[in-house]
């Protein structure tokens, strides 16, 4: 973990409610895909945890949905510096997948799949990306995944684009060795039940600190209690206990 100041170099809308922010700073503690950063914002007590969409050189890319006070503050920033904790969380383990990999993102669960897909492609893996959204107007990053050389399938709940239904409808007839996923918990659970193949899931929980001190985001797993912010947010399929 590292605390440092990042300079905002870009902050623009991707859809009506989803924004892309690029920042420049010390990214040396971001060690792999699936980690998150925790951002201090003026006037708000708690930091805001946001998943890392991509990190290349000293440029950090975040994609966030404007859903509350914190993301509203972020949305209105055009320049300046942000106090950010980087290198948080235990991300995706890329050593466990075979050669044909499925990455499944739903809504703002799509961004962390991007860096993962990019790195998997750089390792020469065959990557199929399934991106799930509610409706056509909410779709973002389809072209970016295609540009990585991923076969990219989009599912919309209302059928306004791509496969009508959920990500699980789009993954029905595919064959793959392993999968990685991030999205709302009902989607994660549906993916869990939809395939016999092994994979890794990234979870979300309300956090106090984001670095393992407060025990605010604990969950039970078959391998014992884990903190979503520290041992997570990525858990392996074999250890998950669905509680909610």
């Amino acid at each position: 973990m590292k605390q440092s100041l990042f300079e905002i170099i870009e902050n623009r809308p991707l859809t009506d409610s989803v924004m892309l922010m690029r920042l420049k700073g010390d990214t040396s503690d971001i060690t792999g895909p699936g980690q998150f950063v925790n951002i201090k914002l003026d006037g708000l007590f708690l930091r805001r945890p946001i998943s890392v969409c991509d990190c290349q050189g000293d440029v950090l890319t975040l994609i966030y949905k404007v859903v509350g006070k914190g993301t509203e503050v972020m949305k209105n920033m055009t320049c300046g510096k942000l106090d950010i904790l980087t290198g948080l969380g235990n991300g995706y383990d890329m050593t466990k997948c075979g050669n044909s990999v499925l990455v499944i993102g739903g809504g703002v669960g799509v961004p962390p799949m991007y860096m993962l897909a990019r790195l998997l492609r750089e390792e020469g893996k065959k990557v199929t990306a399934i991106l799930g959204f509610n409706t056509k107007a909410e779709i973002f990053y389809e072209e970016e995944f295609k540009a990585l050389g991923c076969e990219t399938l989009v599912a919309t709940a209302d059928g306004s684009y791509g496969t009508k239904g959920f990500v699980t409808d789009a993954m029905k007839d595919l064959s793959y060795d392993y999968f990685y996923t991030c999205g709302p918990e009902p989607m994660l659970k549906a993916v869990y039940n939809a395939t016999p193949v092994s994979g890794q899931f990234s979870f979300e929980e309300r956090m106090g600190c984001g670095f393992g001190a407060c025990m605010g985001c604990s969950c039970k797993t078959l391998y014992g209690n884990k903190r979503i912010c520290k041992e997570g947010p990525v858990l392996e399929k074999e250890e998950i206990i669905w509680e909610k």
Binding site: G208, G216, C217, K220
Partner: peptide, 23 residues
Amino acid sequence: RFGNPTPRIAECPAGMINAVGLQ
């Protein structure tokens, strides 16, 4: 002790509420 179910954290003006429950 595992403590309480999640969510355990809420934000307040100039503060926070926790209900970790002695994990």
